[in-house]
Design a protein around this nucleic acid. Structure first.
Lengths: 147, 147
DNA sequence: CGATACCCGACCGAAATGGTAGTGATTGGG
DNA sequence: CCCAATCACTACCATTTCGGTCGGGTATCG
């Protein structure tokens, strides 16, 4: 139940990659500049994203990252969990933390909250977001992404 | 978008108060013992809960806290926001943090996530939880709350 | 070779988290 | 009237997390 800058940056970065899907590797540096993300920090995020199997790295000059699956098959939940670990309540409801066992009324609301969150995140794909972003970029004159 | 132990403890504490609503003030110490919450920490939580108008304090011997409204009119969202501040994404979607203005596709998913969370929390009242808890306590033999 | 890029691990300041400690102020009961 | 119970307030503290930075290593293209 903890969403930090990692998720925010990560989603922006993968939207960027989704908008260039099929164009070959995209450098982390380019993503960082277009999305205004600290470069070295973004590198760390890409490590997690690669380990989670969401992106593929191409090393060497002219290298970079590309989505390892189609943008439509990657959800925001995938990204968030890759970057922040499993999305659990951090609270009693998730695991076996609380000594009340199942006899805890509070657990139900935390569980339902997590489920609601998970539902939203898992039904939004990168292709949707990239599509929406391209519309924004077309109406505004910002060439960052549309180039 | 950050739920910590404060919320978990706070909800447990107010479920305790809800189960004794109308019986006069309940001491923080009693709540702490029944709900297994560090006493001094719980005191801090009650400060926030009182400032938010959710509980009323009665000072002096035989004092304690009581819900300042009926348990059915207090939602989990009320408790969470009293203890952790306004429930916002901590991310771009909430305020005016991101320099993209409205032209940011990522913002939409954060906003929808927050809305989903808020919806769950705001439709669950203390009376519901206290009711569920009393059922648990009746089937199990734990006299902590049923006494 | 050398520039470009990913890879990896260490490090770091600031803030949040989850408490603890101590001291007052207020009140009911004996 | 005094004492114990109880809330009120402030300060402090250890640990972890957050958000980043730094510096080098390694692969690859031209």
């Amino acid at each position: 139940m903890r969403l930090t800058a990692r998720s925010e940056y990560g989603v922006l970065a993968l939207i960027d990659l989704a908008g260039r899907y099929g164009d070959g590797p995209v450098s982390a540096r380019g993503v960082a500049e277009r999305q205004h993300i600290p470069g070295k920090f973004l590198e760390q995020l890409f490590v997690s994203l690669r380990q989670a199997g969401l992106v593929t790295a191409v090393r060497g000059a002219r290298g970079g990252f590309e989505l390892s699956r189609a943008p439509g098959s990657i959800t925001v939940l995938d990204v968030v969990e890759a970057l922040e670990g499993p999305l659990q309540p951090t609270l009693c409801g998730g695991g076996s933390g609380c000594e009340r066992g199942g006899a805890c009324a509070a657990a139900s609301v935390w569980t339902r909250a997590t489920d609601a969150l998970r539902s939203v995140l898992s039904t939004t794909s990168l292709s949707e977001l990239a599509g929406a972003q391209s519309v924004f970029d077309a109406t505004a004159g910002d060439p960052d992404v549309s180039l």
